[in-house]
Design a protein around this nucleic acid. Structure first.
Lengths: 212, 212
DNA sequence: TGTTTCAGTATACACATGTATACTGAAAAG
DNA sequence: CTTTTCAGTATACATGTGTATACTGAAACA
């Protein structure tokens, strides 16, 4: 009853398409990637492309799914590794950089297509990022609940951290691995700085406007 | 003796090319932009393109120059407007968002081509961003010199702030103006948070661990 | 004035693109 | 063993692409 071999082959080809698209888009950007290039790299005929995706945008969205899955895997891994404590930031940053090196192309896609892509694309991307921020917010809250800060603080901190992490990540992608050490330190410092800032109560500056 | 009219015309066409490229690249990304599209939008023949640029990459670099010039203009303006004080962040953020709305396309280019473009492109982009961070670092230093922090702190803070500002900026671009109010507040809070964090002395030894 | 310069045009070409159509051949189903 | 299904092929076509070549006509110049 095990019906596999054929569907299996298709899945494999699909994966090849996705992998190649990822690889190629890292070089020249997904937007500037043609259907024929992808099929050529995956070693199938252009027309066969349509057995798997409606068009390039469809492929792109599948690519984003891949990104999401990988990101969540990374998060889970990081959560397992990192126990709350003085070194949590160091460990997290290290985990992140490892992920970055293993999944450079996924990451490039995430950063590169934030602008420029279709709106469906951007939307999917935002959802992915928001989920990321959300989970980080939760973690921060759990690790610092004794501080009893207003909820928003954790959210702000999470957003700022994600912004910094991704920005530095983009830079790291252009660097050989041995030159990333500085970045790691810088990133760690900046994250700690943000955390420090978030854990401070805002001094009473009750202006007429809302200002925390 | 005033020899203008001809050179003038050329300059005008060049500007039209640049403007159109900027406009179109906002929609579909610069990488996915063809020479013919640009010339069509600028209402000249494809071949005439070569009177102005060697190729699309050349145009792209000129575009980046535009971005740099505008960014620096914004910075100068912000400097004039903002006097050190409790509200400096609010004013800066507001200035930034105004700039964002006036120069959405420049900004899109800056964000969109961070990945994906040619390496010459990325390099030019990094230089532009670094200059931005550099000037912000200086400003921070000047405004907080009494704090007498290690120099690095200002750099870190500047980098983190730029990362956050640009990330939020990217989001703001997708929003109608009246929905940007929340973002403005969020951005202000996050920047203040970073500043607070940076102005704290790191406890203990500077080299080894031991922090939050 | 006549001559030169040169931004922009007209045309053409070889090539890449997305997609439609009919096909093949092997695995799956009966 | 025969039939059906369907991933992938072969071929074709209209359209878009970058670029080369010869040109035009008006401004610049002398």
């Amino acid at each position: 009853m095990i019906t596999e071999s054929r569907l299996d082959q298709k899945t494999k080809t699909r994966k090849r398409l996705i992998d190649m698209a990822l690889k190629l888009s890292a070089v020249k950007g997904f937007a500037a990637l043609s259907l024929r290039e992808v099929t050529a790299a995956a070693e199938i005929t252009p027309a066969a492309f349509y057995r798997h995706f409606r068009d390039m945008e469809d492929l792109g969205l599948s690519l984003l799914d891949e990104v999401g899955i990988s990101l969540r895997r990374m998060l889970r891994e990081a959560r397992n590794r990192v126990r709350p404590g003085p070194d949590s930031v160091d460990v997290s940053v290290q985990t992140f950089l490892e992920f970055l090196n293993d999944n450079g192309n996924l990451f490039r896609l995430l950063l590169g297509e934030r602008q420029g892509a279709s709106s469906a694309f951007r939307k999917a991307l935002h959802i992915e990022m928001d989920r990321f921020v959300g989970e980080l917010t939760e973690d921060l809250q759990k690790n610092h609940e004794k501080a009893e800060l207003p909820l928003r603080n954790y959210g702000y901190a999470a957003e700022a951290i994600v912004a910094v992490v991704f920005t530095v990540g983009a830079e790291a992608l252009d660097l050989p691995k041995h030159k990333q050490v500085n970045l790691a330190e810088r990133l760690t410092e900046e994250v700690k700085m943000i955390l420090r800032g978030s854990l401070l109560r805002t001094e009473g500056k009750p202006t007429k406007k809302r200002s925390t």
